[in-house]
Amino acid sequence: MKIAVLVKQVPATEKVKMDEKTGTMIRSGMEAEANPLDMYAVEEAVRVKEKLGEDTEITVISMGPPMAIDAIKDALSMGCDRGYLVSDSALAGADTLATAYTLSKTIQKLGGFDLIFTGERATDGETGQVGPSVGAQLDMPVLTYVSKIEELNGTHIRVRRAIEGGYEVVEAPLPSLISVVKEINEPRIPNLKGKIRAKRADIPTLTAKELELDTSRIGLEGSPTRVVKIFYPKLSRQTKIVSGKDPELAVEELLKFLEEKELI
């Protein structure tokens, strides 16, 4: 079975700092990491491989700047077989449609896959749109919010989808695209052997030209959406602060406040 996992590199968000004056991200010295939610997709792919045996191959694909190669290496160290980086200055500024177009063309160029895994969403863009869009552009069944693979054979996959109020069980023929949620597994910590293998791996970079991309559909130019403004959310409220030194008094005050607001 041929499996692909789509992995994105994102800023390590806890460390994102904003320039208070300009409202832009301070990128110097910014750390990046593989999207944490994509590690569940990687883990699940590796588990499938462990179950189905050695003739299952896992390819990791990431689109991003040259440093995104580190995200691919993280995935390889967990047990994926090979990786490709899609990197080209012409791709910069791509929105989800343009990103998904680029990734779906890459998937086709690499000969297609039986199963494509994505994370639920990237922690930077936070849209969760790229996976379903890739699936749709490749005309594949799209199974989102997958919390468990119940059955997988050469022709079909049956999964649980975590939805509002419970889960549903659905089945689809291969090839299919699935996006996984955190509940599906616990990603492994790569061992030394995996790390060494990842370090030595040859990860080819693919350009827009090599992928024969339609230049009107990539990068900022090929993106239907435009960010027109960035601003700070108004966090401040009219805060009333009381001391909790006297818990009785503090709670009295709180209850009075809640009563005024008709909350109790």
Binding site: L97, T127, Q129, P132, A136, T144, I163, P224
Partner: peptide, 23 residues
């Protein structure tokens, strides 16, 4: 932005090639 909306909208946006803003 329910599990239905978040699934069908990107699929639909890809089918008709338009933009989609999440959430």
């Amino acid at each position: 932005a329910t599990t239905i909306g978040r699934t069908v909208m990107p699929v639909l946006a890809a089918m008709i090639e338009t933009g989609l803003t999440a959430d």
